[in-house]
Nucleic acid binder design. Structure first.
Lengths: 135, 135
DNA sequence: TTGGATGCAAAAGATTTGCACTCCC
DNA sequence: GGGAGTGCAAATCTTTTGCATCCAA
């Protein structure tokens, strides 16, 4: 997409076919994929893609604020293209991460806490999701 | 300590010298140590201690609710002996985790969200801590 | 006695790094 | 042309696992 081209450049990054592919995929993925999962998906259309490139690009996109890195899965980092205010639920049974719309915390406006400069806030719920509860 | 003996047994676990040492150390450590750090500390007094034992014991203690597992450090799990209500701040520069007393979220009483059964809630702030900001 | 706990070492994953080659600007 | 980006492979780090031995109850 033409828009992606401009956005990537807007982040101060060189535009390459790999970055276009990665950005385009992540942007549309609401499953909160890990880097491995992003790699596997992108590699389907771009078999020559290197894993390191996916890592590098994801980390650049996080730095640029284009996507959010979630530390919610105990085993690995996950990525979320939604930058608007929302929380997350992690199911310890199936491992899925759900978006929780409508923020429940008082925290979003906090710029400083206990003297520390706040850049991001994550409110995380863990437990058993509805689907797993029914089994 | 005699109290630890009873507590560990209360968790439904066999009482071993290793568990006493690990529990006693973690209970007193407010630096939110990783498993590696716990191991290194405990190993100073118990050189024969196995890393696997530390892992197993920590995971039992988490299951029992004796300590809390934090998914706040992007690189590894950390453990917190405080089970009372409080939040955390992670400094992306020095990597330290600070306790934030006085809970800022509206979430603590939530038992269900979007149909999912909630067991734990973590409110995490990230940024640059006061000490690192001054440098 | 006996099932759970431990120690050791190897394995499995996730993430990072070094380096030569490539290509965007 | 030059420096950032890429691909590949090896290295690192965290966490898990298999198994023989040991010990708390």
């Amino acid at each position: 997409m033409e828009g992606d081209f401009k956005k990537i450049r807007g982040f101060g990054l060189k535009v390459t076919p790999q970055r276009l592919a990665i950005f385009s995929l992540v942007k549309a993925d609401r499953t909160h994929p890990s880097a491995q999962e992003v790699y596997q998906e992108v590699a389907r259309k771009h078999p020559e893609m290197s894993f390191a490139t996916v890592y590098n690009t994801l980390s650049k996109l996080v730095e640029a604020g284009a996507v959010q890195e979630l530390n919610i899965d105990p085993d690995k980092k996950r990525f979320d293209p939604r930058t608007s205010l929302h929380d997350h639920f992690y199911c310890r049974v199936c491992g899925k991460v759900y978006d929780v719309d409508g923020d429940v915390s008082l925290a979003p406006n906090i710029k400083t806490i206990a003297g520390h400069r706040v850049e991001t806030v994550q409110l995380t719920f863990k437990g058993v999701c509805e689907a797993c509860s029914r089994k």
